[in-house]
Every structure is written in structure tokens, then in C-alpha cells.
Design a protein around this nucleic acid. Structure first.
Lengths: 225, 225
DNA sequence: AATTTTTCTGAAAGTTTTATGAAAGGGAGT
DNA sequence: ACTCCCTTTCATAAAACTTTCAGAAAAATT
């Protein structure tokens, strides 16, 4: 189980990252500014640090430089669009990757996975891997779906949506929660986008589309009869 | 038991939110403007703040910003449709969610539950997720009803009405309270609408329609003999 | 028993919500 | 810059649900 340190002054951001990271099976700790981050890092080793650039007390760049004096921990920097772009891009401060705010949690998690894998230290998190129901098999970590032994190809969004629904099987999921979980907390697109993806997903599922139930006025539910 | 602070200058709104929140098992305090909210927050910690945007003295945005300086409490903003839409949507003020007035209490409470759960601090109030009586089974989180193992399909209003009655089983519910709880505080339709939905609900419940008792001159009650 | 009040019911009209197909938009790779 | 594939938007169609209304029925009152 890999350990991640999240450093950001905004509670909301820490909260979002924690939620997604824990969902992926990581262990999360938090710090609200650079000074605190350094202090925590002196005591404890992490497999990855996710750090905001703009923070009170001590900014992300300085903290990063300081931590690098005694630790090799991979660091992913977060920054508002345009903010100090050059510096980040140049990786002059020794960060391993950077992500622009507002970020898509999914994308951040992919980077997290990539960086940790690359660093080769932390073990990739183990999650409950396979869900089966009759001829339907969903392999979360392989990111595959098979029906009657036959592989079903899906688009990324279909996987995201479907996996989220399967992981929450038997629970009424509101449109709002589906959108904010699958698209991210900052998606404000068309109301009908979700419908369209449900449509595509149902098409991909063929016979098993019966598992996706419309809850009028609420949202959808994945159920195994 | 999670604590919620409701900030709104309209008594009516505070009253409605208090009522619903207490019904869901939260503890509620009130403030009538931003200044007061800040003062209360300095003294006490809440698990969630529900705050109106438009208020005398100090508006919701400013109050939100101020409170964020010393507290991480999740905040849900309330605003009239169209009002400051952009700001809210941009999450620039650090609120965790927003709800447009006039809101449906049901939707607001779902968001409250989601935000509090997400923040992970306050314990989610335990509502029994499944209610059973003889062959009748009501699963609130799945939003399903089964009779003798057989799924009963209902319309949205039937679910809302029925779930509300079951959650208040054994209690006399006045027509007024049923309407304002299920339809919302701003429903001004026909007197007979409730009757019609009770009729439909009874039809769906078949044998178990005996559990819905008419209280002449008052309203209805759900009872398990 | 007649009258008044309240609830029940079925049908029709009205509204809202979801499904769908086509097309436009976007991004990664060539 | 072009192509391909995926995502999103949009307009329309199709369901599904809600509300209204008026007459019947039931209960309470006079």
C-alpha cells in the first residue's frame, strides 16, 4: 500500500484528492503548507507527494527544493492554469510531473499511478479486482469487460461510468453524483451528456443493458436482478 | 450526530431547512446574516454550513471567504436561479456545492448527506436503510420496494410519498405536512393531488394498501398493524 | 333522513424527463 | 495539417409521470 502526502492550503482540494486516492487504495496524509510538508517528510517517508504551487507560509517550489535535500520522494506539482507555467514546465525544481488546476481527478490518479510505478518503490495498490454476474465479467484493474467470455471494447468514458456504477451496484445514483464522480467536480456541460453515455454503455452491454435501470427523476442504478 | 449551521435572512427558509435536517437526524443552528455566521463559527465547529448568497449586512460569498480563513467546514451555497451563477459555478469561493432556490428539500438533503459523507468527519446519520414488514420490503438507498420478493415498480412521486410515510411510520401526517414534505414548500396546486397519489400508491401496494390509513379531516398514516 | 363535508376514483389534459440519432467539437497520433 | 476516434451538444421523438377535474362514495353533522 503506497503512501501519499497531499499538500495544499485549500481544504476542498485535499478532500477531493484524498477521496480519489483512497478509493484507488492509497494511504493519504495531508499538510496545509510547505513548512508543514517539510516537517512531516522529515519524520516519515512517502511514495509520492502531491503539492500545490501557491500556498501561504512556504510555496510549493521552495518546499520541493527543501525536501529534495533529504528525500527522493517523487513529487507531482499542482498549479492554476498559467501560473508559473515556465518554471513548472522546466522541471527546474525537480518535480516528476505537474497537473494544472482545475484537474480531473481521474487524470491525476493516472499520473499518480504512473509516477509511483515508475519510481518502482511503492507497490501498486491492490483493489478488489473482478466482479462477475452470470456471463458478465468486469475486471477493474485490467480495465476490461467480457460478456460470455468475449471481450467488450469500450471507450474510456464508458469504462469510467460503468466501473463506477458496478462498484456501487444496488444503489440509486443520482445524475448529479454520477456526473461529479465520473466527470469530475468541475464539469458543467450539457445535462444530456450523461444520457448519451448511458445510451452508448447500454449498447455495449447488449443483453446486460437490463442491469442499468433508469430511476426517473433521480438517476440510474446498476443491479444484478 | 452532525451539526449544521443554516445561514439565511429569511425565517421561512431557515425553518424549512431546520425541519428537514432535524428529521434526517442532524443538529441545527441558525444565523441570519454573514456577520453572525462568522461569529458563531469562531466559537463553534460545524460539520456543514448551508448559506444563502444574498443576505443583508454581509453576503454569503464574503462570509464564506472569511470563514475559510479559520475553518475547513464544508459549505453549501444557496442562490436564486441565475443569481451570481458564474461565481458559484466557478467554485471560486471555495464552497463545496450549491443549490438553486427554490430548492427541493429532498435534493438539498441528498447533497447535505453527500457533502458530509465526503468530508468524512461527521458521522452520517444512520437511517435504517431497509424497512421490512411481513412480505413488504422498502430499500431506501436502492430506491426499491418489493412485496413477497417481487419488485414493485413505482413512479417518482410514489416513491417519495411512500418513503416519507414509511420513515414516519405510526405517525399521523397531515395533508399539509405531506404536501410540503413531498412536493416542497412552494407547491400551490390542487387540493386533490395528494388524494390521487395516495390512490396510485395504494394500488401499487396491493394487499399492503391496508397499511395506509386515512385520517379523516387530518391526513394519512402508515402503520404496521 | 337530509345535508354537508371530506375523500376516492377514473379519465383526460398537461408537463417533465429520458432516449436517440445526427452532427459538431476536440485531442492524440501520424 | 490531416485523420481517426471519442466526447459533447443539440434537436426531436418518445415515454413516463403529474395534475386537474368532476362525479361518486363515504363519513360526519344537523
Amino acid at each position: 500500500m503506497s503512501k501519499i502526502l497531499v499538500v495544499d492550503d485549500e481544504f476542498r482540494i485535499r478532500q477531493i484528492i484524498r477521496k480519489y486516492a483512497e478509493f484507488e487504495g492509497y494511504e493519504v496524509e495531508e499538510a496545509t503548507d510547505g513548512m508543514q510538508a517539510i516537517a512531516i517528510c522529515r519524520q516519515k517517508e512517502f511514495d509520492l507527494i502531491i503539492m500545490d504551487v501557491m500556498m501561504p507560509e512556504l510555496d510549493g517550489f521552495s518546499a520541493c527544493r527543501e525536501i529534495r535535500k533529504f528525500r527522493d520522494t517523487p513529487i507531482i506539482m499542482l498549479s492554476a492554469r498559467g501560473e508559473e507555467y515556465d518554471k513548472i514546465h522546466g522541471f527546474e525544481l525537480g518535480s516528476d510531473d505537474y497537473v494544472v488546476k482545475p484537474f480531473s481527478p481521474k487524470e491525476l490518479m493516472m499520473r499518480v499511478g504512473a509516477v509511483i510505478k515508475r519510481s518502482g518503490k511503492g507497490a501498486e495498490p491492490q483493489k478488489n479486482d473482478v466482479f462477475t454476474y452470470e456471463g458478465l465479467e468486469v475486471n477493474f484493474s485490467a480495465r476490461t469487460v467480457t460478456i460470455d467470455g468475449k471481450r467488450v471494447e469500450m471507450t474510456p468514458k464508458e469504462y469510467d461510468l460503468f466501473f463506477y456504477m458496478v462498484r456501487n451496484k444496488g444503489i440509486a445514483l443520482t445524475r448529479e453524483s454520477l456526473i461529479s464522480e465520473v466527470w469530475g467536480y468541475d464539469f458543467f456541460g450539457d445535462e444530456r451528456t450523461l444520457d448519451t453515455h448511458i445510451k452508448l454503455l447500454r449498447k455495449s452491454l447488449g443483453d446486460y443493458s437490463r442491469c442499468i435501470v433508469t430511476l426517473r427523476g433521480v438517476g440510474y442504478r446498476f443491479e444484478t436482478v
